[in-house]
Design a protein around this nucleic acid. Structure first.
Lengths: 166, 166
DNA sequence: TTGTTTTTTCAGTAATTGTTGAAACTTCTT
DNA sequence: AAGAAGTTTCAACAATTACTGAAAAAACAA
């Protein structure tokens, strides 16, 4: 396999992985492309490499910046913007956790709180409340755990965690 | 909020949550419905409650069984099948981890292995290889960590983990 | 074996989600 | 201020994904 084929393969796989996690294919592919690029790329580079339109490129680049996975880079003497991916994997995963927690886990916790105020009348609604309480308990633990995880450093994950739980 | 409204709310939210994680809305809604039901339900119950077709119900119930999130229950004297969700949240999350690891993480590890065999010719492909190696290292750690997590028990998660990493 | 009930499959269709491309906007330069 | 370079927006369109409903298959009963 040549380097060129390897890159192509990686971009495709990363795109497919994104897809199955609710991240659109193109956004994941742009991320992959920037990850493996040694130089910051501009919108045109990305459009050309992935054969996508300007609008598509722009929207997905903004989304990546929004997720904290890509940074804007200004080259002196150049007017246009260049983009560079955060390459530290721990940083990448941390940012994804932070964003998804905020966008998905926290709203769910809010809903669970609201729901757990229903008055239990019969056996069926008693069961309902019990399930909601369990999920709430579990979600709160997960929330707290993710907070700690995000605060801890890469070394901790790569080095210590496995010994602790083995 | 009445119990009925609460249930409705929960089913909708769980469906939306599923959506943003690459799980189809209906599958997540069926899961929600079974979670909060005190009795096992049959296909017709589910079709009626969620206003979906028989085909849709059937396919998504099978998928839930496939993921280990729902079990088939046979009531004596009844010919048709009934379904019951696994209600222990730890068990639910564990099964989801097992499945997604198998379906997504492991194939990605395979791809990374293949890719990391490209010969490095120039500076650009050297950078490429370095990124791939980093991702591989990180993914292997994640893989091992998830294995341990799945082997550990609920109590560990709910009780001990947070103290350890604080 | 034949009829009845239940489950499964899948081609066609519907709904959702993602993409394009051109116009509007912004920023910079002279 | 006018033009050039670059960025953003979004209505129309395309691609993908999900759902339906009816027919086939399977499971069971008499």
């Amino acid at each position: 396999m040549t380097a060129e084929e390897g890159k192509e393969r990686f971009i495709q796989s990363w795109g497919a992985l994104g897809s199955s996690w609710g991240i659109n294919r193109t956004m994941a592919q742009i991320h992959a492309l920037l990850l493996i690029s040694s130089e910051p790329l501009c919108a045109e580079d990305i459009m050309e490499e992935l054969m996508i339109s300007r609008g598509n490129a722009n929207m997905n680049i903004r989304a990546l910046i929004d997720w904290g996975l890509v940074h804007k880079v200004l080259k002196q003497g150049e007017r246009k913007e260049f983009f560079m991916a955060v390459k530290d994997m721990w940083e990448v995963v941390k940012n994804i956790i932070i964003q998804r927690k905020k966008r998905e886990l926290e709203p769910m916790l809010k809903v669970l709180d609201e729901i757990s105020n229903v008055e239990s009348t019969d056996e069926a609604s008693e069961n309902f409340l019990q399930v909601i309480r369990d999920i709430k308990l579990f979600s709160n633990k997960a929330d707290a755990t993710l907070d700690s995880l995000v605060k801890s450093d890469s070394n901790w994950f790569v080095g210590t965690f496995m010994k602790m739980i083995k």
